[in-house]
Nucleic acid binder design. Structure first.
Length: 209
DNA sequence: GGTACGATTGTCT
DNA sequence: GACAATCGTACCT
């Protein structure tokens, strides 16, 4: 059973923690002037809004995180350290600010285009590395600040998501989230990172400083 | 109006 | 394994 459009948005009303493992294997496509890139999601993290000390939404709505408090099915894209971008899929009911961070994926379409987008950046240009890590994923898909709030459930949007229920991932592993510090510094208390077991595209674990 | 800091990555030792 | 890059946001005065 494949979910897209309105059916997908309805499905995304569930909390992030529940949806995160089911999003493994989902297919995300971006349409850009330089071409179309498609990837299969292999690693995610759940963030539970106001209930979650590690979430950007923990302290309530602000100018930056406003999208997370809105309708599910939109992307929350933010800039990190002035250098990189990270992308989240907003889920849960409106106002809950529940979201799933897209940490890694396997490029299954337009790999040559994704590779081109990485020219000049780093030494890792083998295919599994194209979208290994949240910032690399946004580079491969050409997601940037302008995509903050974009709707992935639209019929003809520039970014589209398709979830195949049941055929997601063969085996799902879970563990503490990467780099989450602050009040939620105890990462082990929130083992809300999920990845497809055995995937070479999953990012390396780094504990928060 | 000023300052501290971050859901990361690439490079250097 | 350690650290610099780099800028918008959040929080304080």
């Amino acid at each position: 059973m494949k979910l897209r459009g309105a059916a997908l948005r309805s499905w995304l009303q569930a909390p992030a923690l529940e949806l995160a493992p089911q999003l493994l294997g989902a297919v995300l496509t971006t349409h850009r002037p330089d071409g179309r890139v498609t990837l299969r999601i292999t690693e995610v993290e759940a963030y539970e809004g106001a209930l979650d000390p590690g979430s950007h939404a923990y302290r309530g709505p602000t100018l930056r995180n406003g999208v997370m408090f809105g309708e599910p099915g939109h992307l929350y894209v933010y800039r990190h350290l002035g250098l990189h971008h990270c992308a989240n899929l907003v889920c849960g009911p409106v106002g809950r600010a529940s979201a799933v961070l897209l940490r890694a994926g396997q490029v299954i379409g337009g790999a040559d285009i994704a590779r081109t987008r990485r020219t000049g950046a780093g030494v890792c240009r083998t295919d599994p590395d194209l979208a290994r890590g949240p910032a690399r994923l946004t580079v491969a898909l050409a997601l940037a600040a302008a995509d903050d709030g974009v709707d992935v459930c639209g019929p003809r949007g520039s970014v589209t998501l398709a979830v195949s229920l049941g055929s997601a991932a063969n085996e799902v592993s879970s563990g503490p989230r990467v780099g989450v510090s602050g009040a939620g510094g105890d990462a082990d208390a929130f083992p809300w990172r999920f990845w497809s077991s055995g995937e070479p595209t999953v990012s390396a674990y780094r504990r928060a400083p």
